[in-house]
């Protein structure tokens, strides 16, 4: 379990104003999707926030963890929950698509090499 006392790493205490807010590119995409969908009126912010709190609460309550706490992983889970509730995208669809993407040749796993649309 990390503590706020870490001197480096993702849970390191603040040392300057310039800390990166996203550790990995997918985190910014997960963030961007939620805010874009909210701004487009697909769901309200409290709806998303409630789902996020539920995910965080469940993680905190779980006795055993396969992996360390990861805020944007829970954020993505909350986003999937809300979209599933709206019947916009189901979890099965996301998994099927991701598995299909995993079959791509290795060079195609870099975003920049995938055609934009």
């Amino acid at each position: 379990m990390s503590t706020p006392l870490d001197s480096e790493g993702p849970a390191a205490p603040p040392r300057s104003n310039g800390e990166l807010v996203f550790a990995e590119p997918w985190e910014s995409r997960a963030f961007g999707m939620a805010v874009t969908l909210y701004e487009a009126g697909v769901f309200s912010w409290p709806e998303f926030q409630t789902a996020l709190i539920a995910r965080i609460t469940a993680w905190t309550a779980a006795r055993e963890h396969d992996e360390p706490y990861h805020y944007y992983r829970l954020w993505l889970g909350a986003l999937e929950d809300v979209l599933a509730d709206l019947s916009a995208v189901s979890e099965d669809e996301v998994i099927a698509r991701a598995q299909a993407m995993a079959q791509r040749s290795p060079g195609h796993d870099h975003r920049d090499e995938v055609p934009a649309q």
């Binding site: 990995e24 590119p25 997918w26 995409r29 997960a30 999707m33 874009t36 969908l37 487009a40 697909v42 992983r73 993505l76 986003l79 999937e80 979209l83 916009a88 995208v89 669809e93 996301v94 998994i95 698509r97 991701a98 598995q99 299909a100 993407m101 995993a102 796993d109 975003r111 934009a116 649309q117």
Partner: peptide, 23 residues
């Protein structure tokens, strides 16, 4: 289980195809 990065990309692709987000 696909990596979370792939899962994020998959979700973005599905949302884009359905016209719910504009990348």
């Amino acid at each position: 289980s696909p990596s979370v990065a792939l899962r994020t990309e998959a979700l973005e692709q599905l949302l884009t195809e359905r016209g719910l987000i504009d990348p």
